[in-house]
């Protein structure tokens, strides 16, 4: 039985959409960027090497929690020991990547991005989607998206750790403080973008003040809410910059670990 725009009673128009603009470009770009990121991240996680170049650690591997981690990279110790899956040593990246992944998978903005581009539900506004049935986020597994706030809290922990990583980057390879290199800048920006991403998060906006009914009784939280609300309008931008920059930071650390001289020191 025909459903959607072809349902009984609706105007008989055979096209799925009559849009004349290039509506498919946006989802295409999203797919391209997200897909490249996934491929790159998976490859790097599997590589299980070149993630630490004193004092720089790749954000993909921080904190490094397994005993396979190279020395110096485990800020929080190594509570996990070796993790063996199918007879192979699991890369420590997988232990932690799952959290940022969960954070982003449940992010309100990324939901829009992947529902539109990967799932085509809908691919663009007023363009008929290809699915016969749709239940949205009312059932498992997508109902998990309602727990976004937990990933947000965990995200804050990661932001803190990655900020510490950036501060540690004020050391030189010999472990002396008071130096600064290209790597310092890269990791500082990385932390900044991630904080921006978290601070502009919708769950954050809700927790800071959105859940209140009487702003007038909480002037301080109201002020904070207005600030977060302003950031929130840029959440999409933070989502993309922080994603791309995390990958770039990892790439940079990898290159430095292969060619230590690439990490130019300013002082």
């Amino acid at each position: 039985m025909a459903t959607g725009v072809f349902s009984e009673g609706r105007a008989k128009i055979s096209e799925r959409t009559l849009r004349t603009d290039k509506w498919w470009i946006q989802p295409l770009i999203t797919v391209a960027v997200l897909f490249s990121f996934i491929v790159y991240a998976t490859w790097r996680a599997l590589e299980n090497a070149h993630y630490y170049a004193e004092p720089l650690i790749s954000p993909f591997y921080s904190p490094c929690l397994s005993t396979t981690c190279v020395s110096g990279s485990s800020l929080l110790g190594t509570p996990f020991g070796h993790i063996i899956v199918f007879g192979m040593v699991l890369s420590p990246a997988f232990i932690i990547l799952i959290f940022p992944l969960g954070f982003r998978m449940t992010c309100y903005y990324y939901r829009k991005a992947y529902f539109r581009s990967f799932w085509m539900s809908p691919p663009a506004c007023a363009v008929a989607e290809p699915h016969a049935k749709y239940t949205g986020e009312t059932k498992a597994p997508l109902i998990v998206n309602n727990g976004h706030r937990y990933f947000f809290y965990i995200g804050l922990v990661f932001n803190t750790l990655l900020t510490i990583d950036a501060i540690l980057a004020f050391k030189n390879p010999q472990g002396q403080w008071g130096h600064m290199s290209l790597g310092t800048v890269v990791l500082l920006l990385n932390a900044t973008f991630l904080w921006g991403y978290s601070a502009s998060c919708h769950s954050c906006r809700h927790a800071i003040g959105g859940r209140l009914r009487h702003f007038s009784k909480h002037p301080f939280r109201y002020k904070a809410w207005t600030v977060v609300s302003r950031l929130n309008q840029k959440h999409q931008n933070f989502a993309w910059v922080s994603l791309i920059w995390v990958a770039f930071s990892d790439f940079f650390v990898r290159m430095v670990s292969l060619h230590p001289t690439w990490n130019k020191y300013f002082f």
């Binding site: 939901r111 829009k112 529902f115 539109r116 506004c125 986020e137 009312t138």
Partner: peptide
């Protein structure tokens, strides 16, 4: 009222 059906793809805001 079916709030859970919405997958926040934002077409409503767009139009």
């Amino acid at each position: 009222h079916g709030l859970g059906f919405c997958n926040i793809t934002k077409c409503c805001t767009e139009v």
